[in-house]
């Protein structure tokens, strides 16, 4: 008994972290297999042909047309890639420019109906998108926005705003009043204070909203599929077109689909890697208790 104790003490001198982590490591590793294996399968499949040999031919969809069935081809992925980017960027930009001032007003000013407004945001945030689909069809056609990506952006932004305003409000709540007071006493208007002092102080929160809404726009499939006809409006509908066989089979070899999916999530990985620190840290700070 004393032997094992001295042995442990000897270990602890080098590394005073407790011993025996491997049990938990093993458990979480096995549990994580439900994520690791499928994603690993996706990535390796992107580089293998139907017989299982390694190849890059799956990636030809980037530069060449892809045949779906007789007479129907997908154009090279460049155009849908670009429209996916612009869709996500317009979405993120409009969400941020609308969210930030509104959340500031809700967090740091008093006005008639403030409580009502806060409650309305929660109820709107809980509002189901699917319930409005029928009205959207009618609305977009009356506004002559059918088949235009910008119409879908409007819908998505409007549905996205209540939640993002509530999240952003939480960030504004945590900014100290001193700098706002100082700025007002120094002679700046409330708006100028917001712009020059509060927005810089809320940068981490704003980047969370920016990244989240960008990713949400980037990954949007169903609304685009519903309101935009054609196969290559964005990357998601490009992939959707490859998947939609009548009998549940894919229209292209699965390796090509895997490659397209992998390609589609590369920007997500990059965005997450770049913003990981702020995203993880700030979400902790912003979480309401």
């Amino acid at each position: 008994m004393s032997d094992s104790k001295t042995l442990r003490l000897g270990r602890m001198r080098d590394d005073d972290r407790p011993y025996g982590v491997w049990k938990f490591l093993l458990v979480i590793l096995v549990f994580s297999a439900v994520i690791l294996v499928p994603y690993g399968w996706l990535i390796t499949s992107a580089f293998r042909d139907t017989s299982g040999a390694w190849t890059l031919s799956n990636w030809s969809f980037l530069v060449k047309e892809t045949q779906l069935r007789r007479g129907i081809h997908l154009p090279p992925a460049i155009k849908p890639l670009m429209s996916s980017f612009s869709f996500a960027i317009i979405m993120a930009a409009s969400v941020v420019t609308i969210t930030v001032p509104a959340a500031y007003a809700l967090s740091r000013t008093e006005f008639q109906g403030r409580r009502l407004m806060a409650k309305l945001l929660i109820v709107l945030d809980a509002f189901p998108q699917v319930a409005l689909l029928t009205s959207f069809i009618m609305l977009l056609s009356k506004m002559h926005l059918v088949n235009k990506l910008i119409g879908v952006v409007f819908l998505k932004v409007a549905m996205y705003l209540p939640g993002s305003i509530w999240l952003m409000k939480g960030f504004f709540d945590h900014i100290s009043w001193d700098i706002e007071w100082a700025s007002i006493v120094d002679g700046a208007s409330r708006f100028k204070t917001f712009l020059r002092i509060i927005v810089p102080a809320a940068k981490p929160g704003i980047s969370v909203i920016l990244v989240n809404s960008f990713l949400s726009g980037w990954g949007e499939y169903i609304l685009i599929n519903l309101f935009i006809s054609g196969h290559s409006a964005t990357m998601s509908s490009f992939i959707g077109a490859m998947m939609d066989g009548e009998d549940g089979r894919y229209l292209v070899p699965p390796g090509v689909l895997a490659a397209a999916c992998f390609f589609y999530i590369i920007p997500v990985i990059i965005t997450f890697a770049v913003s990981q620190k702020t995203l993880l840290q700030v979400r902790q700070g912003g979480s309401k208790q």
């Binding site: 609308i98 509104a102 007003a105 006005f111 709107l124 932004v157 409007a158």
Partner: peptide, 18 residues
């Protein structure tokens, strides 16, 4: 007046699209 001006850009899309 100030808070309403700040929230105006929010009201417009939400009224039209929600």
């Amino acid at each position: 007046r100030f808070p309403f001006l700040m929230m105006l850009p929010f009201f417009v899309p939400v009224i039209v699209f929600v």
